[in-house]
């Protein structure tokens, strides 16, 4: 799952971003990207490119790890052995995605320990949706279907970006995500076509998740010179709103097709413009949650901290004292 472009776009900084870069190297770098070439770890790159990439890839990695927590708690209670196996496989995939992403971020010079510490100290962000609980089995089904669907929209776009290691990781990730999507859809369809109680359960979960899903793609972007540069450098592959549109166009019809409702009376496709119209979700809530005040922020980080703490003796026992760390090759 779950790359989310929470890139800060501060227009006032835009001049200092490029001002002290070597103009010839910068021109070569930009020409390479414009030609569709990938940037590799040892290549020269602008400081801002490196900084934003580390932030993006790291956030994405954290989202995979933290995202596995609300689903992971459902493994023991998933109805039936086959669903337990499938959910376990999905959760293992997500943790594996984090490993791939952390490796990609490491090629830019940030160690994995630094990334983990920044996560458990609350310094790094992860996708906001995982600060919400999954109170019923239907919630885990909605996560697997629609949150993963949103993530796929994001990841497919980003896999066409400019940084080689990130693209390679995303290609592997996208290949695995298609199982998550199918598995999630299967669970939702099973409930939606089941008993009245099952139907009600999935309907309620859908209403609970609608606002977080609308938040998922981030606030409407203000166009700024900064985001223009990030687009030119193929770090940002589409505006938040365009990703949200892609998602709505693909999944709202599938939701309505099941006879399920969504909690937004203004949601409809404008046949003339082709765009989906909707009520803006409450972005104040989004800000509150991302800054630590969501229903599960503390729990997520505490669980992650516990995992590091309880795994320490194992890591210590295995540690090879003479070992020298080097960052991954590619």
């Amino acid at each position: 799952m779950y790359g989310n472009a929470y890139i800060e776009t501060d227009g006032s900084k835009v001049h200092s971003i490029i001002a002290d870069e070597d103009p010839i190297k910068l021109a070569l770098f930009e020409a390479r990207i414009a030609a569709g070439d990938k940037i590799e770890p040892k290549d020269w790159m602008p400081k801002e490119y490196r900084k934003q990439l580390i932030r993006m890839i790291e956030q994405h990695g954290h989202s995979e790890i933290i995202g596995s927590l609300p689903e992971g708690t459902w493994i023991t209670r998933a109805p039936g052995f086959r669903r337990k196996l499938a959910l376990m496989a999905k959760v293992q995939d997500e943790v594996g995605h984090a490993q791939l992403l952390y490796s990609a971020a490491e090629t830019l010079g940030k160690s994995r320990e630094d990334m983990t510490n920044d996560l458990i100290n609350g310094k790094s962000k992860y996708s906001n949706v995982f600060n919400y609980p999954a109170p019923t089995w239907a919630d885990s089904a909605i996560i697997a279907w629609l949150i993963d669907a949103g993530a796929i929209v994001n990841q497919l776009a980003n896999s066409k970006g400019s940084y080689g290691p990130y693209c390679r990781a995303l290609e592997r990730i996208c290949a695995e995500e298609s199982f998550h999507l199918k598995y999630g859809h299967d669970n939702v369809v099973f409930l939606a076509t089941g008993t009245p109680i099952q139907r009600q359960m999935v309907q309620n979960a859908l209403h609970r998740w609608w606002e977080p899903i609308m938040h998922f793609f981030g606030p409407p972007d203000k166009s700024s010179q900064h985001s223009e540069i990030l687009m030119r450098w193929k770090l940002k592959m589409g505006s938040n709103d365009s990703m949200r549109q892609t998602f709505l166009a693909m999944y709202v019809p599938k939701i309505w097709d099941l006879g399920l409702t969504l909690p937004d009376p203004n949601l409809r496709k404008n046949e003339e413009s082709g765009f989906w119209e909707y009520t803006e979700p409450n972005w104040e809530v989004f800000k509150q949650v991302i800054n630590g005040n969501g229903p599960c922020n503390k729990e997520r980080l505490a669980v992650r901290r516990m995992a590091e703490e309880k795994g320490r003796w194992v890591r210590k026992a295995l540690m090879n004292q003479g070992a020298m760390y080097v960052s991954p090759l590619s």
């Binding site: 609980p133 505490a302 669980v303």
Partner: peptide, 27 residues
């Protein structure tokens, strides 16, 4: 909501879990 997490009695202010450099081994 997960009883196992409640039973673990996790302190939300704890600073445990901090990694020291290279605790994640060779590449």
């Amino acid at each position: 909501l997960d009883p196992r997490i409640s039973r673990a009695r996790l302190d939300d202010q704890s600073c445990d879990g901090q990694l020291s450099e290279h605790e994640h081994f060779e590449t």
